[in-house]
Design a protein around this nucleic acid. Structure first.
Lengths: 228, 228
DNA sequence: ACAAAAGTGTTAGAGCTACACCCATGC
DNA sequence: GCATGGGTGTAGCTCTAACACTTTTGT
């Protein structure tokens, strides 16, 4: 009965993460130079361990680089062309992740050479990692259009102008600020705080935060699994 | 340099397909009873071979069951919980596929015990195949709202009432036929034929076919059918 | 007082929903 | 001639996109 299993070839299984961040001006991807290929930038990745599921493994690998937990993580696609890794056949399940750069900065592992790159100015990448990034950007655009996941890239407290800049960066456009704020506020997902942002503009913009209860509900029905 | 590869555990890699069909009344999924677990219905699946990519493998497996080629096939999700297959750890990449039941019927392999089940009346399924089907239905609903993939489930020539019945089945609702046909026709993806359907209704409905040139191009959003 | 960014309202057009009647044909 | 499903139009409403001025405050 186990015969049909024993006859089969096993494969190495890797996880690679497209880690998005937003620095207030442009949308960034976190790239590293790692082990085998020290000369080429690549996505952060690692191997599946026998005791963990795919998402758990992706979360662990992300933690090893950034020290962050409770990060937005969504499966992107499984890449399995026979020679995508020219040394040995490896299937890679790619995840994309949204992190708050402020949290990240203080926690980054010093074991890795890592850098943020603007999505419009990426270096050549290892293997098919370039395809992975392209697909992740597509997915992010698609997803952010229907679901308020953009908040995942901003600090706890943020202003409407900051949020608009983020969406401008994601879609490489310039939304009308009146229409934008009307649309965002009409979701009722934002709670206006009494506090104003200091130091950036003279007038100062009101801070908002996400209404977590409502946010969980809207995302639950959609979490994961949106096609490209 | 190969050390980091050699230390890693390899895993079996399977492909499982959720095969949708439409018989004119309700949306169906094709299930089989296969090898190891002869008592439980399961999705059609198979093993990744060393010389093929994931999608190619999924297409091969689909061909082995249905004899069909050039079928709509889209990667759904990679499932990899440690004990999803209790006998030996296996990662499964699930694909969902849309077939024309008329084509299928004549070509089905006799090696397999296979049956169409309504998506609203499924038997218990092997392993996590139930989750796969649930996810596939969700994905189909999203995708069909945005892209005109519904045509993949119908014969070459079909009528507007047939198409409406298909969408009714996918979304488990009853669209208004006037609004539906206006919306569909406004995409300009359909070519009206001179021929009418005989035998079903007295008056007969005009046949349409997809304008393949335009169909290939559309990556834009399509219809606004996303139900709440 | 002026520079720089924040905040806010209105209007026109497009698209959506809801709804009801006549048409063509087989029996 | 009647029953069955096929095909079409309109009116109200909502949503969206386009557009400019006033407010606040640090300097």
């Amino acid at each position: 009965m186990l015969d049909q299993y024993k006859q089969q070839h096993p494969y190495l299984l890797a996880l690679d993460s497209i880690i998005f961040g937003f620095d207030g001006e442009s949308l960034k991807v976190l790239l590293v130079k790692r082990g085998v290929e020290e000369k080429t930038w690549s996505l952060m990745g690692g191997w599946l361990q026998p005791d963990e599921g795919l998402e758990k493994a992706a979360a662990r690998i992300l933690f090893e680089l950034t020290g962050l937990t409770n990060v937005y993580l969504e499966q992107l696609f499984a890449f399995g062309e026979p020679h995508r890794d020219p040394i040995i056949r490896t299937i890679s399940v790619a995840y994309f992740s949204l992190v708050k750069v402020a949290d990240y900065a203080s926690k980054i592992s010093e074991t890795f050479q890592a850098r943020w790159f603007s999505i419009y100015d990426l270096p050549p990448l290892l293997f098919d990692h370039g395809d992975m990034v392209d697909l992740a950007i597509k997915r992010l655009r698609y997803k952010a259009a229907q679901h308020p996941i953009g908040f995942e890239l901003l600090p706890e407290k943020f202003t409407i102008p900051q949020l608009k800049k983020l969406y401008d960066a994601i879609y490489n456009t310039d939304f009308d600020k009146r229409n934008f704020s009307r649309k965002i506020l009409s979701t009722n997902l934002l709670i206006k705080l009494d506090e104003k942002q200091k130091g950036f503009s003279k007038r100062g913009a009101y801070y908002y935060q996400v209404d977590m209860a409502k946010y969980q509900q809207t995302t639950d029905s959609f979490l994961n699994f949106i096609p490209s």
